[in-house]
């Protein structure tokens, strides 16, 4: 498929996504919001993965973004819109500081530390009950845009647009070469003059900010935050499974994975109410075992083989 055709397909898909509220009811919009939220998180996870760093910290940064937004409204009197921007800024600032501590770690050491982030943040929130509401959380007076199904959908879509723009920005800029070089061989990347720590820090802060932004959108859409809900491990595990299913080291892979897994989860739930999670888990295991490069990797393999046959 040539590049222009791909651009046209992306533009059409984008237009269809924006126009979805015109022809879909509240339920498909709600399902789409859930899929989009996890899709955006999957993209941000993949963006950092392109440097070779496997982060399990999505839920932690999503959660502190969520709390920054909700406390911004309740304690600082921010408007809901400002609180979402504040969530992104707060998660970005926190990740900037954390980055100095953890970005010199590599492989499983980095992964383990990021895994602990959600737990550390959750414990901090638990232990400041006067300010954060403690384990019981906090409730907003209402949800943003008075809970309009279309408005909330577009808001979440806006979060996805930010993630997509950042991901494509990573792919089309010097960032791509820097992160790929770091992933392939740090020593040769360093000898080529790449400032490894600086590029990793930029990638970590950008992805964390977006995760915080999404956390802010989430709490403004549901009107509450509790540590158990916003630091839920699913905010780490599902995006990871989606990116692996769709294909890593690309923007399109997590998008494909999120659509497939998100819709499959909802469909299975309605078809097999008392056993869908088992089937869902089996699908993930089978796909990862037999398609380790994901759907996008498979598609590229098939199209590469077709090109070779034509040649």
């Amino acid at each position: 498929m040539n590049r222009n055709l791909l651009r046209l397909a992306a533009a059409l898909a984008g237009a269809a996504a924006v126009a979805l509220p015109a022809f879909a009811g509240a339920y498909p919009l709600q399902v789409a919001r859930n899929v989009i939220m996890y899709m955006a998180l999957a993209i941000t996870w993949d963006m950092l993965l392109r440097s070779g760093q496997i982060s399990f910290g999505i839920a932690g940064l999503f959660g502190i973004g969520a709390y920054a937004a909700v406390l911004g409204v309740l304690r600082a009197g921010m408007s809901p819109w400002l609180s979402i921007a504040f969530a992104a800024a707060f998660a970005g600032a926190a990740s900037f500081l954390i980055g100095f501590l953890i970005l010199r770690l590599r492989t499983m050491y980095f992964s383990i530390v990021t895994l602990a982030l959600a737990e550390i943040f959750r414990i901090v929130i638990h232990n400041l009950p006067e300010f954060t509401g403690g384990p019981e959380g906090v409730v907003l007076e209402g949800v943003i845009m008075k809970g309009s199904a279309s408005g909330l959908y577009w808001l979440t879509l806006g979060g996805l647009a930010v993630a997509l723009a950042a991901s494509w920005g990573f792919e089309k800029s010097r960032m791509h070469f820097a992160l790929t070089a770091i992933r392939n061989n740090e020593t040769s990347a360093k000898s080529s003059g790449i400032d490894i720590f600086r590029w990793l820090l930029v990638a970590f802060v950008v992805t964390s900010s977006i995760q915080g932004l999404l956390g802010g959108i989430y709490v403004q859409s549901y009107g509450f935050a509790t540590p158990d809900s916003v630091f839920d491990a699913n905010f780490t595990l599902l995006p990871l499974a989606m990116a692996l299913l769709g294909g890593i080291h690309s923007t399109i892979g997590p998008v494909l994975g999120a659509i497939l897994l998100g819709l499959a989860a909802e469909w299975l739930k309605l078809r097999i109410p008392y056993g869908h999670l088992v089937v869902y888990g089996i699908i993930i295991i089978v796909v990862i075992l037999f398609m380790p490069k994901g759907l996008y990797g498979l598609a590229r393999k098939v199209s590469g083989a077709a090109d070779r046959r034509r040649a």
Binding site: A16, L20, A24, P28, A32, V35, I259, E266
Partner: peptide, 19 residues
């Protein structure tokens, strides 16, 4: 892709699960 997604959602709505 989004169009595919929309078609998928509509297809879901048409299945017995929603009947």
């Amino acid at each position: 892709m989004k169009r595919t997604f929309a078609i998928l959602v509509i297809a879901m709505l048409a299945t017995g699960a929603f009947a």
